[in-house]
Protein backbone atom coordinates (compact mmCIF):
# COMPACT_ATOMS: atom_id res chain seq x y z
CA UNK A 1 0.00 0.00 0.00
CA UNK A 2 1.43 3.35 -0.95
CA UNK A 3 2.30 5.93 1.65
CA UNK A 4 -0.38 8.27 0.38
CA UNK A 5 -3.11 5.69 0.72
CA UNK A 6 -1.88 4.69 4.17
CA UNK A 7 -2.06 8.31 5.28
CA UNK A 8 -5.66 8.61 4.11
CA UNK A 9 -6.66 5.36 5.83
CA UNK A 10 -5.01 6.58 9.01
CA UNK A 11 -7.09 9.74 8.88
CA UNK A 12 -10.23 7.66 8.42
CA UNK A 13 -9.30 5.46 11.38
CA UNK A 14 -8.74 8.52 13.52
CA UNK A 15 -12.21 9.75 12.63
CA UNK A 16 -13.73 6.35 13.36
CA UNK A 17 -12.09 6.48 16.79
CA UNK A 18 -13.62 9.86 17.60
CA UNK A 19 -16.67 10.44 15.39
CA UNK A 20 -17.81 13.33 17.58
CA UNK A 21 -15.19 15.56 15.99
CA UNK A 22 -17.09 15.60 12.71
CA UNK A 23 -20.40 16.45 14.28
CA UNK A 24 -19.37 19.31 16.51
CA UNK A 25 -18.87 21.85 13.68
CA UNK A 26 -22.17 20.77 12.07
CA UNK A 27 -23.88 21.19 15.38
CA UNK A 28 -22.30 24.65 15.69
CA UNK A 29 -23.48 25.58 12.18
CA UNK A 30 -27.05 24.53 12.89
CA UNK A 31 -27.08 26.42 16.19
CA UNK A 32 -25.81 29.63 14.58
CA UNK A 33 -28.41 29.31 11.82
CA UNK A 34 -31.16 28.82 14.41
CA UNK A 35 -30.06 32.00 16.15
CA UNK A 36 -30.49 34.14 13.01
CA UNK A 37 -34.33 34.20 12.87
CA UNK A 38 -34.44 34.49 16.65
CA UNK A 39 -32.20 37.52 16.65
CA UNK A 40 -33.75 39.09 13.55
CA UNK A 41 -37.38 38.31 12.85
CA UNK A 42 -39.24 35.22 11.65
CA UNK A 43 -39.96 37.07 8.39
CA UNK A 44 -39.27 34.70 5.48
CA UNK A 45 -38.78 37.49 2.90
CA UNK A 46 -36.06 39.09 4.97
CA UNK A 47 -34.50 35.72 5.79
CA UNK A 48 -34.40 34.58 2.19
CA UNK A 49 -32.60 37.78 1.27
CA UNK A 50 -29.82 37.54 3.86
CA UNK A 51 -30.00 33.77 4.43
CA UNK A 52 -27.34 32.70 1.95
CA UNK A 53 -24.83 35.24 3.28
CA UNK A 54 -25.58 34.13 6.85
CA UNK A 55 -25.01 30.48 5.93
CA UNK A 56 -21.74 31.41 4.23
CA UNK A 57 -20.42 33.22 7.30
CA UNK A 58 -21.61 30.47 9.66
CA UNK A 59 -19.94 27.78 7.53
CA UNK A 60 -16.75 29.84 7.49
CA UNK A 61 -16.78 30.03 11.29
CA UNK A 62 -17.52 26.34 11.65
CA UNK A 63 -14.66 25.53 9.29
CA UNK A 64 -12.30 27.71 11.33
CA UNK A 65 -13.42 26.00 14.52
CA UNK A 66 -12.71 22.71 12.82
CA UNK A 67 -9.26 23.49 11.46
CA UNK A 68 -7.87 25.32 14.47
CA UNK A 69 -6.16 22.23 15.91
CA UNK A 70 -5.45 20.53 12.60
CA UNK A 71 -1.83 19.63 13.38
CA UNK A 72 -1.97 19.64 17.17
CA UNK A 73 -2.33 15.91 17.88
CA UNK A 74 0.12 14.94 15.15
CA UNK A 75 2.54 17.44 16.64
CA UNK A 76 2.26 16.24 20.22
CA UNK A 77 2.51 12.52 19.44
CA UNK A 78 5.51 12.98 17.14
CA UNK A 79 3.92 12.14 13.78
CA UNK A 80 5.02 15.45 12.28
CA UNK A 81 8.60 14.70 13.26
CA UNK A 82 8.40 11.38 11.42
CA UNK A 83 7.19 13.23 8.33
CA UNK A 84 10.55 14.96 8.12
CA UNK A 85 12.28 11.59 7.68
CA UNK A 86 10.06 10.36 4.86
CA UNK A 87 11.24 10.33 1.26
CA UNK A 88 8.52 12.81 0.30
CA UNK A 89 8.66 16.60 0.38
CA UNK A 90 7.04 17.97 3.50
CA UNK A 91 4.78 20.27 1.47
CA UNK A 92 3.35 17.21 -0.33
CA UNK A 93 2.53 15.48 2.97
CA UNK A 94 0.99 18.69 4.27
CA UNK A 95 -1.07 18.90 1.10
CA UNK A 96 -2.29 15.34 1.63
CA UNK A 97 -3.24 16.10 5.21
CA UNK A 98 -5.15 19.17 4.03
CA UNK A 99 -6.93 17.19 1.31
CA UNK A 100 -7.90 14.51 3.84
CA UNK A 101 -9.13 17.20 6.21
CA UNK A 102 -11.19 18.80 3.48
CA UNK A 103 -12.68 15.47 2.39
CA UNK A 104 -13.54 14.12 5.82
CA UNK A 105 -14.23 17.25 7.85
CA UNK A 106 -15.14 20.14 5.55
CA UNK A 107 -17.20 18.33 2.92
CA UNK A 108 -19.70 16.93 5.47
CA UNK A 109 -20.15 20.48 6.71
CA UNK A 110 -20.96 21.68 3.19
CA UNK A 111 -23.36 18.81 2.65
CA UNK A 112 -25.63 19.91 5.49
CA UNK A 113 -25.85 23.54 4.35
CA UNK A 114 -28.95 22.82 2.18
CA UNK A 115 -30.83 22.02 5.38
CA UNK A 116 -29.75 25.36 6.78
CA UNK A 117 -30.85 26.94 3.52
CA UNK A 118 -34.34 25.46 3.82
CA UNK A 119 -34.54 26.70 7.40
CA UNK A 120 -33.78 30.27 6.24
CA UNK A 121 -36.05 29.88 3.15
CA UNK A 122 -33.25 30.48 0.65
CA UNK A 123 -34.53 29.99 -2.95
CA UNK A 124 -33.38 26.78 -4.64
CA UNK A 125 -31.22 28.32 -7.37
CA UNK A 126 -29.44 30.51 -4.81
CA UNK A 127 -28.95 27.44 -2.65
CA UNK A 128 -27.32 25.69 -5.59
CA UNK A 129 -25.00 28.67 -6.12
CA UNK A 130 -24.22 28.62 -2.40
CA UNK A 131 -23.22 24.97 -2.55
CA UNK A 132 -21.02 25.54 -5.60
CA UNK A 133 -19.24 28.53 -4.03
CA UNK A 134 -18.63 26.61 -0.83
CA UNK A 135 -17.18 23.62 -2.69
CA UNK A 136 -14.92 25.88 -4.75
CA UNK A 137 -13.87 28.25 -1.97
CA UNK A 138 -13.34 25.92 0.99
CA UNK A 139 -10.04 24.42 -0.28
CA UNK A 140 -8.49 27.92 -0.09
CA UNK A 141 -10.05 28.54 3.33
CA UNK A 142 -8.84 25.16 4.60
CA UNK A 143 -5.30 25.89 3.42
CA UNK A 144 -5.18 29.31 5.06
CA UNK A 145 -6.61 28.13 8.34
CA UNK A 146 -4.17 25.20 8.22
CA UNK A 147 -1.41 27.78 7.97
CA UNK A 148 -2.81 29.55 11.03
CA UNK A 149 -2.86 26.23 12.89
CA UNK A 150 0.74 25.45 11.87
CA UNK A 151 2.07 28.90 12.80
CA UNK A 152 0.67 28.70 16.32
CA UNK A 153 1.68 25.06 16.91
CA UNK A 154 4.54 25.81 19.27
CA UNK A 155 2.71 28.14 21.60
CA UNK A 156 0.55 26.58 24.26
CA UNK A 157 -1.36 29.78 25.04
CA UNK A 158 -2.26 30.76 21.51
CA UNK A 159 -6.02 30.16 21.96
CA UNK A 160 -7.85 31.13 18.81
CA UNK A 161 -4.90 33.20 17.61
CA UNK A 162 -4.47 31.12 14.44
CA UNK A 163 -8.02 32.01 13.45
CA UNK A 164 -7.57 35.71 14.22
CA UNK A 165 -4.35 35.87 12.25
CA UNK A 166 -5.79 34.24 9.15
CA UNK A 167 -9.25 35.82 9.00
CA UNK A 168 -8.17 39.02 7.16
CA UNK A 169 -6.78 36.87 4.35
CA UNK A 170 -10.25 35.46 3.71
CA UNK A 171 -11.54 38.81 2.49
CA UNK A 172 -11.16 38.16 -1.28
CA UNK A 173 -12.84 34.75 -1.00
CA UNK A 174 -15.79 36.12 0.96
CA UNK A 175 -16.23 39.04 -1.44
CA UNK A 176 -16.15 36.83 -4.55
CA UNK A 177 -18.54 34.30 -3.02
CA UNK A 178 -20.92 37.08 -1.99
CA UNK A 179 -20.74 38.41 -5.55
CA UNK A 180 -21.77 35.01 -6.89
CA UNK A 181 -24.69 34.84 -4.47
CA UNK A 182 -25.90 38.34 -5.35
CA UNK A 183 -25.77 37.51 -9.05
CA UNK A 184 -27.55 34.22 -8.46
CA UNK A 185 -30.31 36.12 -6.66
CA UNK A 186 -31.01 38.44 -9.58
CA UNK A 187 -30.44 35.71 -12.10
CA UNK A 188 -27.36 37.07 -13.90
CA UNK A 189 -24.28 35.16 -15.05
CA UNK A 190 -22.24 33.77 -12.15
CA UNK A 191 -19.62 31.91 -14.20
CA UNK A 192 -16.91 34.65 -14.37
CA UNK A 193 -16.88 35.09 -10.62
CA UNK A 194 -16.89 31.36 -10.02
CA UNK A 195 -13.86 31.11 -12.30
CA UNK A 196 -12.05 33.80 -10.30
CA UNK A 197 -12.94 32.05 -7.07
CA UNK A 198 -11.67 28.77 -8.48
CA UNK A 199 -8.44 30.42 -9.60
CA UNK A 200 -7.88 31.81 -6.11
CA UNK A 201 -8.51 28.38 -4.61
CA UNK A 202 -6.13 26.65 -7.01
CA UNK A 203 -3.33 29.15 -6.36
CA UNK A 204 -3.88 28.93 -2.60
CA UNK A 205 -3.94 25.13 -2.64
CA UNK A 206 -0.69 25.09 -4.63
CA UNK A 207 1.33 27.65 -2.68
CA UNK A 208 0.01 27.66 0.88
CA UNK A 209 1.17 24.06 1.69
CA UNK A 210 4.74 25.28 1.09
CA UNK A 211 4.26 28.01 3.70
CA UNK A 212 2.59 25.49 6.03
CA UNK A 213 5.53 23.10 5.71
CA UNK A 214 7.93 25.97 6.50
CA UNK A 215 5.88 26.75 9.62
CA UNK A 216 5.90 23.09 10.69
CA UNK A 217 9.64 22.78 10.15
CA UNK A 218 10.09 25.88 12.26
CA UNK A 219 8.15 24.37 15.13
CA UNK A 220 9.94 21.03 15.01
CA UNK A 221 13.52 21.77 14.10
CA UNK A 222 13.78 25.28 15.42
CA UNK A 223 17.30 25.48 14.05
CA UNK A 224 16.73 25.26 10.30
Amino acid sequence: MSLERRMLTRELKLIAARPGDIFKPMWFLMLVISMVPLALAPDSDLLSEIGSAMIWVATLLALLLNTEHLFQSDFSDGVLEQWLFLDRPLAWLVGLKLIAHWLFHVLPLILITPIAGIMLSVPTDVLLALLVTLVIATPALTCFSGLGAALTLGSSRSGILGVLVMMPLFVPVVILAAGVLIRAMDGSDTLPLLALLGAFSVVAATLVPIAVSAAIRLNIGGSN
Partner: peptide
Protein backbone atom coordinates in the same frame (compact mmCIF):
# COMPACT_ATOMS: atom_id res chain seq x y z
CA UNK B 1 -2.53 43.02 14.68
CA UNK B 2 -2.07 39.42 13.54
CA UNK B 3 1.69 39.89 13.23
CA UNK B 4 1.89 41.52 16.67
CA UNK B 5 -0.30 38.83 18.25
CA UNK B 6 1.62 35.95 16.70
CA UNK B 7 4.90 37.29 18.04
CA UNK B 8 3.42 37.77 21.49
CA UNK B 9 2.19 34.17 21.57
CA UNK B 10 5.52 32.47 20.79
CA UNK B 11 8.11 32.62 23.51
CA UNK B 12 11.36 31.91 21.69
CA UNK B 13 12.26 35.16 19.87
CA UNK B 14 14.00 33.44 16.93
CA UNK B 15 11.05 31.13 16.33
Amino acid sequence: LGVIGLRAAIQDPDQ
